[in-house]
Amino acid sequence: MAILEIDNLTKYYKDVRALSDLNLKVKRGEFVSIIGRSGAGKSTLLRCINRMIEPSSGSIRFDGVDMLSLGRSQLRRARTRIGMIFQHFNLVPRQTVAENVLHGRLGYMGAVRGALGLYSAEEKAAAFEVIGRLGLQDQLHKRCDQLSGGQKQRVGIARALVQDPRLILCDEPIASLDPGSAKIIMDHLHRISRDMNITVLMNLHQVDVAIKYSDRVVGVRAGEIVFDDEPRKLKKRVVAEIYGSEADDILFEESPDGLSA
């Protein structure tokens, strides 16, 4: 069953068309990577789903809800079930790991209770559990500006998980990390998707990583989907089509094993 259904999604920035008539279905628990060169519309696509960017037209159904018809407070409620992970982590740097993770619960709280940070005992326990699962228990009370990049991204994941999400949107989650940390982050996200049946939709520009971890790869070029299939079907020719002239740089940087001509 599809948890996310996108139909005829179109987005214009003034006169520039960023997404054109895009269709995409994602199943519950699926791990889907979106690849494409910068400016192809990957980020816009991801942000249209939780309406951090307002689409120009089309329809998006998430978990049975028509996202584009929602009013302000309904949209807030829908967003609580969608976690988001960012390239630059987007934490509050001067607050501790525990505080940042608990921020994931604010969507479930009233304005005043949230502003005062009155988290319930269960919420604190849930945050503590998630922090442990991501191996951050020793960093619990450390300020986030003292963490390494990989640790910061794990805080980002913990914050998304504590939301109890059905879907996690990842916008280039490993683009600012060294290869070692990147692998740890990808392994965590993969495990989350598999063990917790959480759908992961991820923008990536490392084709080899997309092939290794994804159930499905979606190739976006100039706001249109030009490939949507299992990773093993992603041939060199297709990658060349997605990336155009950049393809050579991308393919032979780390020469992916899964790719055949």
Binding site: N50, M52, L75, R76, R77, A78, R79, T80, I82, G83, M84, F86, H88, F89, N90, L91, V92, P93, R94, Q95, E99, H103, G104, L106, G107, Y108, M109, G110, A111, V112, G114, A115, L116, G117, G156, R159, A160, Q163, L169
Partner: peptide, 26 residues
Amino acid sequence: SSVEALRSSGAPWLAIVVRAVIPSVM
């Protein structure tokens, strides 16, 4: 950036201002 993250999680406006904006700009 932190406001973007909290908005995407459905946090109420007042909570975002108090929990994320104030500590960041202090």
